[in-house]
Design a protein around this nucleic acid. Structure first.
Lengths: 165, 165
DNA sequence: GTTGTTGCAAAAGATTTGCATCCAT
DNA sequence: ATGGATGCAAATCTTTTGCAACAAC
């Protein structure tokens, strides 16, 4: 889906290390391994997906550590947590260079596509102002039938790790 | 928050009964009790909230039945399920007469306010068309500091039943 | 009477946590 | 050496489910 070259990954790993140092946390091999894999996934994933990806490392990294590292990466701002109405939380690597975007999700196959619309962003700020809120975050998800499902009546159902209904 | 008069409730109960009949499901006292309470809550709630509200009826209605009735009401279209990034799902009674709206949520006290913006709705449809999706649903939540938190530095923290972080 | 419903307790699924051991600093 | 990290298993939390007894139609 997205291309992540090793240069990017290196930069992101440094950023994560900086974050850990600043918080007096330790830079361990487990944390680096989990972070490295996350930075190279290039699509939305669940902790279950991540565990599967790391399964050859299962003697080295426990599920608890995976959860704990994911939390740290969310805190460092390098990982975004999403709620697509499924059982598990979804995560998405957010490179420093990357602009914000929203999501459109197929209710059948669960494919997640991204979009960015400056007008919507602008209106959201106006709404927050009107309500006297200091806007910190937002989430906009569109749900529907993807092109394939609409046109052929079926798509790659349940391709994702989690069910949508 | 919202005013629901008994006339509305009666109409909604009829609608639910119709739904049950159409599906060859039975109209039981438990289902009617749960539905009636839901129709009179007037704000966003979790199943835990609902259980608390029904606690004087706890000898009559089990938690399992509450969950099962909530699912039916979602299916009948009279209840909307929301995900505000908390542990539990939130529900909102949606009277037949009510127009769609989105939500703005305080990250501290969890207060949920509603808004409707026709431009955002319009743009969403355009985006779905561009992606060749048949739009079925969407969710837009804004998160931030509410007026009180912004101005006074504090608000009624954790007023809601669930924590936000 | 038949078929769906309820309550219970157990199960399931995701995530978190206590604790003894281990390791980065 | 010491304070944080890890792995394990147990715990937690929300939601779902199997099943026997029960109620609506």
């Amino acid at each position: 889906m997205k291309e992540n070259n090793s240069f990017d990954i290196h930069k992101e790993l440094s950023k994560f290390s900086e974050f850990l140092k600043k918080k007096n946390l330790k830079i361990t091999s487990q944390r680096l391994l989990v972070a490295e894999k996350i930075f190279s996934i290039g699509e939305h994933f669940t902790v279950e997906d991540l565990t599967e990806i790391l399964k050859d490392k299962r003697d080295e990294i426990s599920r608890a550590t995976i959860y704990r590292t994911v939390s740290l990466l969310v805190e460092s701002g390098q990982l975004i947590e999403h709620d697509f109405g499924k059982n598990s939380k979804y995560y998405e690597f957010s490179p420093s260079s990357q602009e914000h975007h929203d999501h459109i999700v197929c209710l059948d196959c669960g494919i997640i596509e991204e979009f960015y619309n400056p007008n919507i962003e602008k209106i959201q700020i106006e709404i927050a102002n009107k309500f006297n809120y200091e806007l910190k975050d937002h989430s906009l998800n569109l749900y529907g039938k993807c092109k394939l499902l609409k046109e052929k009546g079926f798509c790659e159902k349940q391709k994702q790790s989690d069910k949508l209904n």
